[in-house]
């Protein structure tokens, strides 16, 4: 029962209702997007359009996790961009390796 003894030296602030509500709202959005992806996987024909939708929805989810859960949008602008800008290199890696993969395909088959 030691957890229930309140011998705190720090002042405990009351629950921030608005913040907590926002957290649950973000959670709901993430779960709804995942359900939509799940639904589309079985209703839409597999192809470029579906894959583009999946990647778009994934980026939306990633943005919600980074901005709301990891509070990146509340950090200073310098920190925000020093995390976001290096990710541009990944675009290059993606382009380079996609071409590489396609070329290997041509060579093999």
């Amino acid at each position: 029962m030691s957890l229930h003894e309140n011998n705190s030296t720090l002042e405990v602030l009351p629950r921030n209702k608005e913040k907590i509500k926002k957290i649950w709202k973000t959670a709901l959005i993430l779960l709804v997007i995942t359900s939509v992806e799940f639904l589309l996987a079985f209703t839409m024909e597999r192809g470029m359009l579906l894959f583009a939708i999946f990647i778009g929805l994934t980026l939306v989810k990633a943005a919600y996790i980074m901005m709301e859960f990891m509070h990146l949008k509340d950090e200073s602008k310098t920190l925000f961009w020093s995390i976001m800008l290096p990710l541009i290199f990944l675009v290059w890696l993606l382009i380079a390796l996609s071409k590489e993969g396609a070329d290997i395909f041509m060579y093999r088959w």
């Binding site: 957890l3 229930h4 705190s8 720090l10 002042e11 405990v12 602030l13 009351p14 629950r15 921030n16 913040k19 907590i20 957290i23 649950w24 973000t26 959670a27 993430l30 779960l31 995942t34 799940f38 996790i65 709301e68 859960f69």
Partner: peptide
């Protein structure tokens, strides 16, 4: 799908723990 749900929910409880930490609320953090 179930695994994804579990991981997203654990992320939600984590962010709730962080919120409780901001308020110095030991019981809620734990």
């Amino acid at each position: 799908g179930i695994m994804t749900f579990i991981l997203i929910m654990s992320s939600v409880t984590m962010v709730l723990a962080v919120e409780a930490g901001h308020r110095n609320d030991r019981q809620d953090v734990v």
